[in-house]
Design a protein around this nucleic acid. Structure first.
Length: 197
DNA sequence: GTACAGATTGAG
DNA sequence: TCAATCTGTACT
C-alpha cells in the first residue's frame, strides 16, 4: 500500500519528526497475516536530558528508558499508572535520548469488516490496547519489523492544519517545561484525544 | 526491603 | 472528582 518510513525519517530533529508523523500510518500485522492500520493524528515530543518531563532528564539511563537512547526508529514502550502502555518512537542519533509519544490514531475504515471507531484509539493508552502493543515490542526496529511499522500513504498535512499546544499531564515537570508547546495534533480531527485548546 | 507516584482512563 | 493497578525508582 504505502511506502515504509526509513531510518532517515526518524534519525533527525525530534520536533520536526513529531510534526511529520502526523498523517503517517501505523501498521500492525498480527500472527496469521491480518493487519490493522491507523493514521497518526496526535504526537508529543520529549527532549531529554534537558527536558524535565523526559524520562532521560539529567542524562539518566535506566532499564526502562534505554530505548530512548537508541537511534531513531526504535520502539520505546512503558507502562504508566500500573495499567496503560505508552507507545513512543525514538528519534535522533544514537546516544541522544529523545522520542515522540504517539497519542492518537484515526482508524483506517475497513468496509468489509465492521466500521472502526475513533473511541478505540483516541488516547495513548487506548491505541496500544487497540493495536495490541505491549512490552514485547520494546526496542523493536520500525524500519525492519514484520509486525509493526509506519507508512507514508500519501496523506498530506499542511502546516496550517497542525496545532501546537502544551503536553498533557506533565505538571510534575514544572511550569517552564509544562508550557512548551510540544504536543502536535491535526486540527479538527475527530480522533484527537480529549483536551483541545 | 519499603515507599511512592505516574507521558491514563472510564465510571460516578 | 476519583479509584484502578503495578512497576520503576529512590531511599533506608
Amino acid at each position: 500500500m504505502g511506502s515504509r518510513l526509513t531510518r532517515s525519517f526518524y534519525a533527525r530533529s525530534t520536533i520536526a519528526t513529531a510534526k511529520d508523523l502526523l498523517g503517517k500510518f501505523l501498521v500492525r500485522r498480527f500472527p496469521g497475516g491480518k493487519t490493522r492500520a491507523g493514521m497518526i493524528v496526535e504526537t508529543e515530543a520529549y527532549i531529554g536530558p534537558q527536558d524535565r518531563a523526559s524520562h532521560a532528564f539529567g542524562g539518566k539511563v535506566t532499564p526502562r528508558n534505554r530505548a530512548e537512547w537508541m537511534v531513531g526508529g526504535h520502539v520505546y514502550i512503558y507502562l504508566v499508572y500500573g495499567m496503560y502502555w505508552q507507545f513512543n518512537i525514538s528519534t535522533g542519533k544514537e546516544g541522544v535520548p529523545e522520542c515522540v509519544l504517539i497519542r492518537a490514531l484515526e482508524p483506517v475504515r475497513n468496509v468489509k469488516l465492521k466500521m472502526q471507531n475513533v473511541k478505540f484509539s483516541n488516547g495513548p493508552g487506548k491505541l496500544c490496547r487497540w493495536m495490541k502493543l505491549d512490552k514485547s515490542f520494546y526496542g523493536e526496529d520500525l524500519t525492519k519489523s514484520r509486525r509493526l511499522w509506519l507508512e507514508d500513504r500519501g496523506a498530506r498535512v499542511t502546516r496550517s492544519q497542525i496545532v501546537a499546544s502544551p503536553r498533557i499531564n506533565i505538571d510534575y515537570a514544572g511550569a517552564h517545561w509544562a508550557a512548551k508547546a510540544w504536543r502536535f495534533y491535526i486540527k479538527s480531527n475527530p480522533a484527537v484525544s480529549k483536551p483541545h485548546w
